[in-house]
Computed example of a mutant assay.
Amino acid sequence: MAAIVRIMQNSALRRSLTLTKSNIRAISTSKKNRDTVCADESIQKKQVVDFTSPKTQNWVSYGFDHKNEKDDLNAMHSTFFFSITLCIVFGGLIFTYYPDVMLRDWSQREGYLELRRREELGLPLIDRNLIDPEKIVLPSDEELGETEIII
């Protein structure tokens, strides 16, 4: 095993020494790595921009109004204000802090209180007879007659 490691180290060392001695040039995969770009004189001339006029040059519509920039901006700002601020932010706050309509919290608290009461009295946690069987009045067989009873 040690002999294999020595052979691998020596071959790697020899390869690195031969590579550093020879003229190695980096290989480029780009076909246009030596192309140059020339610009026309018309492009090289500086364009004079008049900053004194408030006219915007390259207006891109937000899609609300394609002809008037001011109406387009007003519609965009009002739409995002109502949709983001009012609907999402205030809607989320109302949904989060709205009172418990279905009384889930109340029923859970009552269940825990009932479990604690039953444990203290030594009763089973879940009673088989929720209602006392003596209080239930069932019809007799004569009253039922031919009625099919499904259990």
Rank of each mutant, 00 (worst) to 15 (best):
T85G: 02
W106R: 11
E110G: 01
R104E: 04
G91I: 03
S83F: 11
W106V: 10
Y98F: 12
T85K: 04
R118G: 04
L93E: 07
I84V: 08
F95S: 12
P124N: 07
F95Y: 14
F82E: 13
S107R: 15
R104K: 09
I126T: 01
Y98R: 12
P99H: 13
R104Y: 08
R116L: 12
S107A: 09
R104H: 05
R128T: 09
L103H: 04
R117L: 11
F81D: 03
Q108T: 14
T79M: 03
R128E: 09
I94L: 02
R109Y: 05
I94T: 00
D127G: 02
L113S: 10
I88A: 06
I131Y: 05
F90V: 04
L86W: 11
L86S: 06
S78K: 10
S78I: 02
T85N: 13
L125T: 12
L123G: 00
S83E: 15
T85I: 12
R104M: 12
V101A: 07
P99Q: 10
G92A: 10
L86A: 11
P124E: 13
L113M: 14
D132N: 15
H77E: 06
T96W: 00
S107D: 07
T79A: 11
T85M: 05
F95Q: 05
T96G: 00
I84T: 07
V101M: 05
D132F: 00
P133F: 05
L113E: 12
E134H: 11
C87N: 15
Y97I: 07
T85V: 09
F80N: 12
L123Q: 10
H77M: 06
L121I: 11
D127L: 15
L123V: 00
L113K: 13
L93R: 03
L123N: 13
E120T: 04
G122Y: 06
C87V: 14
L113A: 11
G111D: 10
I94Q: 02
E120H: 08
G91A: 03
L125M: 14
D132A: 13
H77Y: 09
D105K: 10
F82S: 11
P124Q: 11
Y98D: 07
R109C: 03
L115S: 08
F95G: 01
Y112M: 14
L113Q: 09
R104F: 06
E110Q: 14
K135R: 15
T85F: 12
Y112D: 14
G91L: 07
G92Y: 08
Q108C: 05
L86F: 13
G122H: 01
R109Q: 15
D132T: 05
I131W: 02
G91E: 04
R118P: 01
E134Q: 14
I136E: 14
E114N: 14
S107Y: 03
L115K: 07
I131H: 06
Y97S: 03
T96E: 03
R128N: 03
E110L: 08
P124F: 02
W106F: 13
G91F: 02
G111S: 15
F81R: 11
Y112G: 01
L121P: 00
F82K: 12
R128D: 06
I84N: 08
Y98C: 09
H77T: 09
I136C: 13
D127A: 15
I126L: 12
Y98E: 13
G122R: 07
I131K: 08
Y112P: 00
Y97L: 14
Y98G: 00
I126Q: 06
